[in-house]
Design a protein around this nucleic acid. Structure first.
Lengths: 331, 331
DNA sequence: GTGAAAGCGCTAACAG
DNA sequence: CTGTTAGCGCTTTCAC
């Protein structure tokens, strides 16, 4: 069997309470006894039993993370940020993915909540009422979605979309296509709105080409509509769509960026591997993850209300080769 | 406070043991009492306290998964397979990634092991002795690595490499480059060996072009060496390398597959999005994940020894556009 | 500063 | 088939 507190206590010739204290509240134990205890604990290879500990304290030392889809390269980066910070804070990360299914999301919240001290929900798809219902009683932080009364890490999606439109405008584009993401997605709406506002402000024609799944296939499927829209540039909801679009257009023999400029969103790894490398908006995924953990810890410590929202994290346009000065009409 | 067993027992007018039994060994309780208990439990919103339960049973209901790097698209698919099966078996998945750092791997094994019923180690990088040491006392299954005495899910890496070489041979290639993966990687060695044996058997010249990191950048860096090797085809350790290679060669104006045929390994999602779409060897990632859970459950049930190894999972060549009949010398 | 004692919520003998 | 009785390993009053 494993070494228990009692074993250490016996070996160090003190009571179990003293050993317990030496481990969790070192300042409340005499320095010399503490040294002796810590030493024997190490010698015996003592490892506290988390189950027993949390049975009393109610704390688990675990942090739950729920993402819609790990095979979407967006999320592993967020998770990496979360894990890094969680690890620093001596928290173990418990990760689950919902497979993009809101019902699974609800189930997983229910399953995970009792096993963790707090929950980070990335790209939660659940309607706000269901969400509020599911997380009631748990410390929760939303990433890339904000709802009144729930803590969140917001990212400046609208600002990113604005930068994309401004960039294209600066390059001389005056008629720009918008490929929007799913209407159910919070960030999709923010990005579309941001693009619309920027276009209006600059006097640019924004043609709404369509609404598609945020995937490679979604992008391929919308290529025809993009061509039909007769635009000189396109901004899309995310990089996956953009790469699918590029792929299909490539098949049609459309030269990018000579004949069409294209801007993605997220700056996932593949964005730089595309032909041509994608101009896109960097989404601070790791930072968002780290911040989510900090926010959660504040919440647990009672140091902040779920309500008061900090500034959204900035997004940043990364210019690569998929955008160019608008010439197709002038040549 | 939360509803406890005792609350349910009181409300249903039975003892706590009966409630406990009704929940965990339903057949040992009278059908009618059981119905009543289950009913009141539901009505009261009873949720068993896992900490208390596992304090006694020693079981946690958790399954630990350790991967080297979630941002490598290979692993999320394995994890998806694991999660799917684990969920069916009412196990929660606890996931951690090591960031490709063997020390972190050791730490994580130590941290996770006491919180889970069993551990699935994907692409473990730890030397065999350290590994055996770290996992002693835990139920463990290795994915894509096998070590004597440890249970594992093996995949036929050598067979995949053989198929790749045979394919190129069939297309007329007689001088083929091999870009190997890191020497520390078990599967990298298996793939290289498989390719060598196949080449020898077919009388094909296999030119060892180099050993690189299994990444996009690794592939880019090896492009010059590939050209210098004067081969008509290349097989690489994995798709990431292959895509990097393609990318750089593209920049050089080398036409693929007209001037050089290229075969990857893994069939990650991006493989079909590459220009041209990659001929590659499909690695059954989800299947491997599912099987790992089954294996682990067998282990826990004492139904199989860690020693007896089942057949490795088959790999399968997927032919796409990055390979073609060898003409560059004949035209 | 340290020890004794009382549980946390649950399961597992053991009787009945 | 059901209840009683002991704890699992740990933390936390409360005395000393």
């Amino acid at each position: 069997m494993a070494v228990t507190l009692a074993d250490v206590a016996r070996a160090a010739e003190v009571s179990t309470s003293t050993v317990s204290r030496a481990l969790t509240q070192p300042e409340r134990v005499d320095e010399r006894t503490r040294a002796r205890i810590l030493d024997t604990a190490r010698r015996l290879g003592y490892r506290p039993n988390r189950a027993a500990r949390s049975l009393i304290t109610g704390r688990t030392g675990n942090l739950g993370v729920i993402v819609p889809d790990l095979t979407n390269p967006f999320f592993p980066d967020v998770v990496a940020g979360i894990q890094a910070r969680a690890h620093q804070r001596a928290l173990t990360t418990l990760l689950a993915d919902t497979g993009d299914d809101p019902d699974a999301e609800r189930d997983l919240i229910a399953t995970l909540a009792p096993q963790v001290d707090g929950l980070v929900l990335c790209g939660a798809r659940l309607p706000v009422d269901d969400l509020a219902d599911a997380v009631s009683g748990s410390a929760v932080v939303l990433v890339n979605r904000s709802e009144p009364g729930l803590a969140s890490v917001a990212v400046d999606n609208a600002g990113g979309a604005r930068q994309a439109v401004e960039h294209l405008h600066a390059l001389g584009h005056r008629r720009i296509g918008l490929v929007a993401g799913p209407a159910t997605s919070h960030s999709a709406r923010e990005r579309s709105d941001g693009a619309r506002r920027a276009a209006a402000a600059l006097g640019v024609d924004l043609v709404e080409v369509g609404t598609v799944a945020p995937t490679f296939d979604g992008g391929r499927g919308v290529a025809d509509a993009v061509l039909r829209a007769d635009v000189s540039a396109v901004v899309a909801y995310n990089d996956a769509i953009t790469i699918g679009l590029l792929h299909r257009l490539h098949g049609y023999g459309v030269r990018i960026p000579a004949e069409l400029s294209v801007v993605g969103f997220d700056d996932i790894q593949i964005a730089q591997m595309a032909h041509p490398p994608l101009t896109t908006v960097r989404f601070p995924r790791r930072e968002a993850g780290r911040l989510a953990v900090d926010r959660l810890l504040d919440l647990l410590a009672g140091e902040r209300d779920p309500g008061d929202e900090p500034e959204p994290l900035p997004t940043e346009l990364v210019v690569r080769a998929s955008t160019a000065v608008h010439r197709s009409r002038t040549t």
